[in-house]
């Protein structure tokens, strides 16, 4: 080895350092090759979901002048659509990470998990950037979409991204075995979106419908984010524990799956 052994308390820090270097290189490369071949191309990766979010929020806010809760239509709509955007884009792009980087497995230092982690970090940053730009844009336009409780809002948004990235890991694993999975995922995502209560107030729906919606993790993302705007909102239905356990289960299933099909991910 080129470097002096860096073992401290039996843990080899050099191995970790090497992994960090590989992941760093993969991140730079991924951002540069996302669209075309310049770092500017990465801006498209941010602009895409951002445009999607702005479009739905604008159209739905104009269509529903009377909102079921609060006074600002944009708040109700954007808090419903944001979880969908934060889940759809990161999970989908992460799911394609192995396929787009397959050539790189020629280099033994590039392993599937390194590629997945690198993508996960980029998707996290992209999602954060989308949220920040959306809120800056809204305040410039004079639309007040700022939450009442900032810490609840931050935790709920981060939890949504966590759920999305866990889902992305599962997507990578299943998608590399079954090619049709990526299409199937869009169908699942749309089903989750339409039953998440993005445009309706769940408490206005019959109890049986609410009970069925409760199992949808995206529903809890919406409820959680809205609870940062409206005092006491989601008290009856919201379970942060359910959402976080669901995401954590997906994460562990994904990591387990990656270990079992690593050989297949590397070489097809």
């Amino acid at each position: 080895m080129r470097n002096a052994p860096g073992k401290i308390n039996g843990f080899d820090w050099d191995v970790l350092d090497a992994r960090v270097d590989v992941i760093g290189a993969l991140i730079l490369r991924d951002m540069r090759t996302r669209f075309g071949r310049s770092h500017l191309g990465y801006l498209l990766a941010v602009a895409w979901p951002l445009t999607h979010l702005i479009t739905i929020t604008t159209i739905m806010s104009i269509a529903n002048r009377v909102v079921p809760i609060g006074t600002e239509p944009a708040v109700f709509i954007s808090s419903g659509v944001l979880p969908y955007i934060l889940c759809l884009y990161p999970a989908r792009t992460m799911g394609l990470s192995i396929e787009t980087n397959r050539l790189l497995f020629l280099f033994p230092a590039v392993t599937p998990i390194n590629v997945i982690i690198a993508r996960g970090i980029i998707e996290f940053l992209t999602a954060a950037l989308v949220v920040i730009l959306f809120f800056i844009g809204a305040s410039i336009l004079g639309v007040n979409v700022l939450p009442a409780n900032y810490s609840t809002w931050l935790v709920s948004v981060l939890s949504t991204i966590y759920f999305s990235i866990s889902m992305g890991l599962i997507n990578t694993v299943i998608g590399s075995i079954f090619k049709f999975w990526h299409v199937f995922f869009l169908v699942i995502m749309f089903g989750m979106y339409s039953s998440s209560g993005a445009f309706v107030l769940p408490s206005n729906l019959p109890q049986s419908t609410q009970n069925a919606m409760w199992y949808n993790p995206l529903f809890h993302c919406v409820e959680w984010i809205r609870s940062s705007y409206f005092e006491g909102y989601g008290d009856g239905n919201l379970s942060q524990f359910y959402l976080l356990s669901f995401a954590t289960c997906l994460l562990f299933l994904g990591l387990l799956g990656e270990r079992f099909i690593r050989g297949k991910l590397l070489f097809q």
Binding site: D21, G24, R29, T33, G36, R37, L103, L104, L106, V110
Partner: peptide, 21 residues
């Protein structure tokens, strides 16, 4: 094989240099 077709030779060399530290 293994080098990225869309990236320049220089970018490819930099990438491989980085992953091999």
């Amino acid at each position: 094989g293994g080098l990225h077709p869309e990236m320049t030779g220089r970018e490819n060399v930099h990438f491989v240099a980085r992953i091999y530290r």
